[in-house]
Simulated scan of single mutants.
Amino acid sequence: MNVTNQTMMIYFIIKGISDAPDLQALIFVLVLFMYLFILGGNMTIVLLVCLDPQLHTPMYFFLCNLSSSTVTLHKILISFLTGNNTISLYACMTQMFIFRSLVCNELLMLTAMRYDRFVAVCNPLYYATVMSPCLCASLASVCWASGFVESLPLFVLVSRFSCYKSKEINHFFCDIMPIIKLSCSDTTLFNLLIFICGLFLSIFTFLLTFIPYIFIIQTILSIRSSAGKHKAFYTCSSHLTVVILLYVTLICQYMRSTSMDTLESSKLFSLFNTAAVPMLNPLIYSLKNKDVKSALKRRWF
Rank of each mutant, 00 (worst) to 15 (best):
T262C: 06
D186F: 03
L107P: 02
S69A: 13
S79K: 00
R100H: 09
L47E: 10
H239Q: 07
V243Q: 08
W300Q: 05
L287W: 11
C174W: 05
T57P: 01
L201R: 12
C252D: 08
L189N: 10
Y35K: 01
I196S: 04
A275S: 15
N42E: 13
Q6N: 08
T57F: 02
G83S: 09
K293P: 01
V49P: 01
M59I: 07
F172C: 09
T188K: 07
S166G: 06
S266K: 15
F195R: 09
R298D: 10
M279S: 15
I176E: 12
Y254M: 06
T274K: 07
V277T: 05
M34V: 09
M59L: 09
T235G: 05
I179Y: 02
T258I: 10
S286K: 03
E264N: 13
T274H: 13
F97H: 10
W144M: 10
V158G: 00
F62A: 01
L201E: 09
S101V: 04
L280Q: 03
A275F: 02
L207M: 12
I216Y: 00
I180T: 11
L240C: 11
N123C: 08
L81W: 13
R298K: 15
L73D: 05
L110M: 15
S162M: 09
R160C: 10
V3H: 10
I17D: 00
N170G: 00
L208K: 11
S68F: 12
I13V: 14
L81G: 00
M9Q: 14
T44Q: 09
N289A: 04
